[in-house]
Nucleic acid binder design. Structure first.
Length: 407
RNA sequence: GGGCAGGUAGCGAAGCGGUCAAACGCAUCAGACUGUAAAUCUGACGGCUUAUGCCUUCGGAGGUUCGAAUCCUUCCCUGCCCA
């Protein structure tokens, strides 16, 4: 039923940063094969940010590989933890969500995740199921199993503590709550980014405390965002969303620095190992223009999440707008009522939300960022064209088709 | 409970009675350039019927002053040290 261990390990090892401990994983695989029982592979997801991007896809794709090998994927929606609001890391006060909100986000997460995962083989559970029924006494008992010193070992805590930044008591409970998830589902393997190392390891300790065999921690590298510096995240706006429309996905991919091309191929796509090697070589030797590889990457990604046809379309559209400097095929329309013609360019820009304020609208015009039907507007007070339909362009890539209606 | 240091625009951080819509850096936006939505360079970066004009901002509320981000009172929040 299961492929040979070596084969499984080859697939599992691709792209991973660390497996702790690897021997345990091999042993678990052997046992699973012997007893013909799939392993339980756990992945926790944060329902406060339901928009998935390529960064999430790195781990999700690993989970998919486990599914394809015949193992069971369990997605844990942190609806309970989301209700409290985790203030860890950079976002200091994460808004506490209601149970309905976290459920809804969980749904949305699942829908997006199944663009990568096999929906039939994915089990989805909500951690309020077991965390919500714990009593205060249970929590204290759980907390007694870990020490402050060990908690402070966590890199994130150490740094914040040294920097004199606040750490709330309940943040200490998060790793423990996450560990309880592993206990509840009897996880054999937990996936996560390298930033999850500490939490994954706490899971091992707590499982042991509950008389379970500790899980294997499998960590994937953190994907760098399109800025080439920070990790990909929505709040830094350096992400490529897996639900981004094809054109967007294509364009964003082309904007990554050349140094990231290989990493993206390795972590975010399915290109076979041989091709991966070729790509690395051609990048190192300079035999191929990086642009061509980047375009291939962009096409590959769009093809993965949409279709090869969409990928070609996105590429054509990109060339049309940025290389030929022409206008896109489909432009959003805005219906403009102009009866007594009090609409100026400035008010038009604010009305259409192309500018957030009139001052900004003026600024854009003064800096030459606004054009109508391809003609740059330089005068703030220039009259609007009298035509019934015209195209307004702001910056490099925001277009709007204005359709005038006269009542 | 006591002592000390802080809370400034999206973030970080200057300013410590008028010349402050508030230096500087990052982020953002625009322009030039480019294979690119990259890099680099240039500029902008609270709002308003563009105005050497007005309005709203420096944790909250009061107060002193002709005038307060800057001084005082009080409250809230954060860190450190002592208990």
């Amino acid at each position: 039923m299961f492929p040979p261990i070596n084969e499984q390990m080859d697939i599992i090892r691709r792209g991973v940063s660390e497996i702790i401990p690897e021997e345990d994983l091999v042993r678990k695989l052997e046992q699973s094969q012997r007893t013909n029982t799939p392993l339980i592979i756990k992945l926790g997801c944060d329902p406060s940010r339901p928009d998935l991007h390529l960064g999430h896809s790195v781990v999700l794709r690993k989970l998919r590989q486990f599914q394809d090998l015949g193992h069971t994927a369990v997605l844990i929606v942190g609806d309970f933890t989301g209700m409290i609001g985790d203030p860890s890391g950079k976002s200091k006060t994460r808004p506490a969500l209601t149970l309905e909100e976290t459920r809804r986000n969980g749904e949305s997460y699942f829908q997006q995740a199944t663009k990568i995962l096999d929906p039939v083989k994915t089990k989805i559970v909500y951690n309020s199921e077991w965390l919500g029924t714990m009593t205060f006494a249970d929590v204290i008992r759980l907390a007694s199993k870990y020490t402050v010193a060990r908690m402070l070992e966590r890199d994130d805590f150490t740094l914040r503590y040294k920097a004199g930044e606040p750490i709330s008591i309940h943040e200490f409970l998060y790793p423990l709550a996450q560990a309880m998830d592993s206990v509840a589902i009897k996880a054999d393997v937990e996936l996560g980014g390298t930033d999850q190392k500490f939490n994954l390891l706490v899971g091992r300790d707590i499982q042991r405390e509950f008389g379970l065999e500790p899980q294997v921690a499998l960590m994937m590298p953190i994907l760098t965002g399109t800025d080439g510096v920070e990790k990909m995240s929505k709040s830094l706006d350096n992400y490529i969303g897996i639900t981004d429309p094809p054109n967007e996905m294509y364009g964003k991919t082309l904007s990554i620095p050349d140094s990231l091309i290989y990493t993206y191929f390795e972590l975010a796509t399915d290109v076979p190992l041989e091709r991966l090697k070729e790509i690395k070589e051609s990048l190192n030797s300079g035999a191929v223009n990086p642009r061509d590889l980047k375009r291939e990457l962009a096409r590959t990604l769009v093809a993965m999440y949409y279709s090869p046809q969409e990928a070609l379309k996105a590429e054509a559209e990109f060339d049309k707008i940025f290389v030929e400097k022409s206008t896109p095929t489909d432009i959003e329309e805005f219906k403009l009522e102009r009866e007594n013609d009090t609409v100026t360019i400035v008010t038009l820009l604010t009305q259409t939300k192309l500018a957030s304020s009139k001052s900004e609208a003026r600024r854009l015009i003064e800096q030459g960022g606004v054009s109508i039907d391809g003609e740059r507007i330089t005068d703030v007070n220039a009259p609007l064209p009298t035509k019934p339909v015209f195209i307004v362009k702001v910056g490099k890539r925001r277009f709007l088709k204005i359709v005038c209606t006269t009542n």
